[in-house]
Each structure stands twice: as structure tokens, then as C-alpha cells.
């Protein structure tokens, strides 16, 4: 059974403005998508180190092999920026899962979705995220800012269940929840025998590609 993990942050303790709908957003995704529900960490229990590789970066306190890279799909809802997702606490690390500290897919992770602003901003997207793709198939997110709304996670799971590809399900969920000024985006890795991450479906709902070698990457963005 494929495994699912979510992290969300509403309370940012003054580091950034608080958010309202991240818990609902992530938990609706978590409740609807069929699979093994592995973890649901919110607010002060959502940490940047959960997303980071052990021994990489500074501070090098990453524990992704236990959390984000231990599930097949991960969903984060909170603040973000071009360098990565942002967290409300710094007790265990620095409160930012910076792309330089990330290596995803060298364990289990196939896909990660960011309900957060600008993580996939197009300028420099390959330079920032190229090395994070260590077997990961697709990062889903936004080129632009996005709104603090409550339905996207639900619709994303809904379309995955209906058998749409990861990419189409994400685009549909974004278009159904945003105005046309917002821009959805994804970054996927390619390369390797029999690999085609473009056609990836949720486990049990269609084709799932073998892990890509990351010899090439495709990034796409469009209006919601």
C-alpha cells in the first residue's frame, strides 16, 4: 500500500504572517487519498529537518529518511519561497528546508506537492532544484504566489482517485481553486530505461514510472 505524509503550518510565531487554511487543506488531501496514512505533522511539529537529507547543509540535522522520503507522496501546506518551504519553529534547525539541503527519492518519495508560494518560480528553477531530484519523479507547486484556501488538497486527491495523472490532477486542482493570475507549475525528472514520469498516476490508479536517473528535467507552468 502506498504511503502518504502531510505537513502544514498555520502558526508562524511572528516569523511570517499566520495562515488560516493550511490544516484543512492538507488534511482533506490526507483523508481522501487511499493509502497508508504515515504522518500528519502540523504547526510546531512540522520541521524543516523532516524535509532535509541527513548530513547535508548547515545545520546538517536532516531526517528526511524517517519522514518525507519515507512515503510515496508528501503534501506541504504553508509559506514558501523560491528556496523552499518555510516553517514556524527553529528549535531543531533553521526553519527553512533550503533546496541545498534536500535530496529526495533516494529512499521512497515519488512525488511532493507544495501548496505554498513560488517554490517553483521559473527563474533559476533548474539551478535550485536539479540536485534535489535523486529518484524523485515530480515536484508540484506554483510559479506565482497562491491563495490561502481550503479546497485544493481535496480536489487533488479527488482527481488522483479518478485516475488522472499526477500532473493533470494538480493542474485541475489549481485551476478549480485559483484565479487566472495564479500560475501552477511542476518540475519532473526524466531519463532511464522505461521511465516516463509525465504519465505517473497514484499507486493503484494507473501507470507508475520507475525512478528516473535525472539525466534531463522538464518544467512547466501555466495560468490557473
Amino acid at each position: 500500500m502506498a504511503k502518504i505524509g502531510i505537513e502544514w503550518v498555520k502558526n508562524y510565531h511572528g516569523r511570517y504572517a499566520n495562515l488560516s487554511n493550511t490544516k484543512t487543506q492538507a488534511e482533506r488531501f490526507y483523508s481522501l487519498l487511499p493509502g497508508t496514512r504515515s504522518f500528519n505533522w502540523g504547526n510546531d511539529l512540522a520541521w524543516d529537518q523532516d524535509f532535509e537529507e541527513s548530513g547535508v547543509g548547515s545545520p546538517s540535522t536532516g531526517t528526511d529518511s524517517v519522514w518525507i522520503d519515507s512515503v510515496h507522496i508528501a503534501f506541504f501546506s504553508g509559506h514558501g519561497g523560491p528556496n523552499g518551504p518555510l516553517f514556524g519553529v527553529t528549535n531543531f534547525d533553521d526553519g527553512e528546508a533550503h533546496h541545498t539541503e534536500i535530496r529526495w527519492g533516494n529512499r521512497t518519495l515519488n512525488w511532493i506537492a507544495f501548496d505554498a508560494c513560488e517554490i517553483l518560480r521559473s527563474n533559476g528553477v533548474f539551478d535550485r532544484w536539479r540536485d534535489t531530484l535523486q529518484g524523485l519523479h515530480i515536484i508540484l507547486g506554483f510559479h506565482s504566489t497562491t491563495s490561502d484556501e481550503a479546497y485544493r488538497g481535496l480536489y487533488f486527491a479527488f482527481y488522483l482517485i479518478l485516475g488522472y495523472t499526477l500532473i493533470d490532477a494538480w493542474k485541475k486542482a489549481c485551476i478549480l481553486t485559483e484565479g487566472s493570475n495564479t500560475q501552477w507549475a511542476y518540475l519532473r525528472a526524466g531519463g532511464g530505461a522505461g521511465v516516463n514520469t509525465y504519465l505517473d498516476h497514484w499507486h493503484g490508479r494507473g501507470w507508475v514510472s520507475p525512478d528516473p536517473t535525472n539525466s534531463w528535467r522538464a518544467y512547466s507552468k501555466g495560468s490557473c
Partner: peptide, 19 residues
């Protein structure tokens, strides 16, 4: 009508310098 926008894809290959 409020805007005209585009879907764009960027492709990067390890062996090629150009995107």
C-alpha cells in the same frame, strides 16, 4: 477579457548547456 497568458515548458538536459 482580462489577460492573455501562455503555458510554457523548459527542458534541461545534462549534456546540453542550453535550456
Amino acid at each position: 477579457p482580462a489577460s492573455v497568458s501562455y503555458t510554457e515548458t523548459l527542458i534541461e538536459k545534462n549534456e546540453e548547456k542550453e535550456i
